[in-house]
């Protein structure tokens, strides 16, 4: 086995004064964590800082995040993550595990994941929510850096509430994945992303499905109410900037 094995951990709990404390904030290997200033008084904010370029082929990286009941945690990142080829051509793995307790709120808003030419990454994001938990989650995938062909990228997003499946989506792009560049999946777009909002308020008032933008130059998106208290904004775009613009639309209940 070659490559870096590292697991970073964040645990947020209510601090008893209306705010949120971070009893565990432990970066490891290429994943460094910084507590940063939050605009929201209730929230603790953590910024993931890539201390070195990762993941390379063969790496196994993980981030485990827990927002205990009542905690409010915002996690963002300082820069995009670039998947690069390793020496032996092995696949890299990146696992994100999010746990959100009752009445807790987690915003997981990393910067884009860029699949550089020749890279091979399997990224899995699993969110386990207690009933009544809130989650705001954004994922952005960009296929190749400017002017290069995409690497191989598979991302799976699984969200459960109280152990029951709410959302399960896998995207697979690049060499060896079949059909992704066709008109059913990405067409000529090279960036894809999702913004998921889980909020108990959607129980009473589900989001209304809509197709906000239909301009192929800028990309396309669709807002869909899920079969549960959540709304999903799905977008595809020619590049990361257009994608971010589409994913900046409001999805709040």
């Amino acid at each position: 086995m070659s490559g870096v094995h590292a697991t970073a951990r964040i645990t947020a709990v209510p601090d008893g004064r209306g705010g949120t404390a971070l009893p565990e904030l432990a970066g490891e290997g290429p994943i460094a964590l910084r507590r940063t200033r939050s605009a929201d008084e209730r929230a603790a904010r953590v910024t993931v800082v890539g201390a070195m370029t990762a993941p390379l082929g063969g790496d196994r990286l993980a981030v485990h995040v827990t927002a205990a009941p009542g905690a409010v945690l915002h996690v963002d990142a300082a820069a995009a993550t670039v998947a690069l080829p390793g020496r032996g051509g092995e696949r890299a793995r990146y696992e994100v595990r999010l746990t959100v307790g009752e009445d807790a709120e987690l915003h997981w808003l990393p910067e884009p994941l860029i699949a550089a030419e020749g890279s091979d990454l399997l990224m899995t994001t699993t969110a386990e929510l207690a009933p009544g938990a809130r989650l705001v989650l954004r994922e952005e995938q960009i296929l190749g850096r400017a002017g290069e062909r995409p690497g191989r990228l598979t991302t799976r997003l699984t969200v459960r509430i109280g152990g029951r499946p709410l959302l399960d989506q896998e995207l697979s792009f690049g060499p060896g994945a079949a059909g992704w560049a066709g008109p059913a999946v990405l067409h000529t777009y090279r960036a894809a992303g999702q913004l998921l909002v889980v909020d108990p308020a959607f129980e009473e008032k589900p989001a209304e499905a809509r197709v906000p933008v239909r301009d192929a130059e800028q990309g396309e998106s669709v807002l869909t109410p899920l079969a549960g208290p959540a709304a999903l904004l799905t977008a595809v775009a020619p590049d990361g900037l257009c994608l971010r613009r589409l994913l900046s639309a409001s999805v709040a209940p």
Binding site: D168, V185, A209, V211, V222, A235
Partner: peptide, 17 residues
Amino acid sequence: GALPAASAPLLDVYAEA
């Protein structure tokens, strides 16, 4: 959870449009 979950973003856009 062992079942595949492969998705096609444009099929979702098409369906709602």
